[in-house]
C-alpha cells in the first residue's frame, strides 16, 4: 500500500469508527462498537484479522468490569481498540505492544473530552424547555442530531490525531526507546490476554 493510500485508509477508518462509536451510548447499543466485534472487523478490513482479534480481545476483556451505570463514564474501549489498530496497521505502523497502551491512552483521553461534552449538553435541555415555554415546538429531532454530530466529530478528531500525530511520533521514537522499556512493554503485552481472561472469569463468578 502506498503512503498516500495508507493515510487515506487510516482517515476513512477513523471516519467509520466515529460513526460506529455512536453505538456505545448515543444510538442503539447493538454492540457493533464492542472491541471484540470492532477489532476483528477492522483487522479484516486492514488485512490483519488475527491482530484485530488479539487487540480486540484484550480491550474487550479489560473493559468488562466497566459497567455504564448511572453517571459513570468508563474509558472508551471502542476508541481504545480502534486507535490501537490504526497505530498497528497504519502507514507508520508500530508493534502491538506499543499500540495497545497508546490505544488505551486514546480511550482515556476520549473519556475526558466526552465528560466535558456531557456537561455542555445541559444547554440542549435548556434550549428545548425555552422553546416550549415560548409556545414554540422544541424541535427535539434537531437537538438529537446536533448531539450525535458533536459526538461523532469528537471521536473522529481523537482518532485522526492518532493517525496523523501519535502514529508517526511513536514510529520515530520506538527504535530509540530504552531497551528496558521495550522489554517491559513486551512483557505486559504477553501477559495481557491472561489478565483479560482473569477479568472474564471474575465477571462471570456465580454467587449463591
Amino acid at each position: 500500500m502506498s503512503w498516500t493510500a495508507g493515510w487515506l485508509a487510516g482517515m476513512a477508518a477513523a471516519a467509520l469508527v466515529a460513526v460506529l462509536e455512536l453505538d456505545v451510548v448515543q444510538f442503539g447499543q447493538f454492540m457493533i462498537s464492542r472491541p471484540l466485534v470492532l477489532g476483528p472487523l477492522l483487522g479484516l478490513l486492514f488485512g490483519l484479522p488475527q491482530t484485530g482479534l488479539a487487540l480486540g480481545a484484550c480491550c474487550e476483556l479489560f473493559s468488562l468490569d466497566d459497567l455504564p451505570v448511572g453517571g459513570s463514564l468508563p474509558l472508551n474501549a471502542t476508541v481504545a481498540v480502534s486507535a490501537a489498530l490504526l497505530l498497528n496497521c497504519g502507514p507508520r505502523a508500530v508493534p502491538p505492544e506499543v499500540a495497545l497502551p497508546a490505544g488505551l491512552t486514546a480511550g482515556w483521553l476520549h473519556q475526558k473530552i466526552e465528560t466535558a461534552l456531557r456537561y455542555r449538553r445541559r444547554a440542549l435541555c435548556g434550549c428545548a424547555e425555552e422553546s416550549l415555554l415560548r409556545g414554540c415546538e422544541p424541535r427535539l429531532g434537531r437537538l438529537v442530531g446536533q448531539a450525535i454530530c458533536e459526538q461523532a466529530a469528537m471521536t473522529f478528531t481523537v482518532l485522526l490525531a492518532c493517525v496523523l500525530v501519535v502514529g508517526p511520533a511513536l514510529h520515530w521514537l520506538w527504535p530509540h526507546a530504552p531497551h528496558n522499556a521495550v522489554e517491559a512493554l513486551r512483557f505486559a503485552w504477553a501477559l495481557a490476554p491472561w489478565l483479560g481472561l482473569g477479568v472474564l472469569l471474575h465477571a462471570l463468578k456465580v454467587t449463591p
Binding site: Q26, F27, R118, R121, R122, G141, L143, V144, A147
Partner: peptide
C-alpha cells in the same frame, strides 16, 4: 434514548424525543 445524555437530566431529553 441516550443521544442527548447529560449529567443533569441523563436520558431525559431522549425520553421526551
Amino acid at each position: 434514548l441516550q443521544s442527548c445524555w447529560s449529567f443533569e437530566r441523563m436520558q431525559g431529553l431522549g425520553f421526551a424525543y
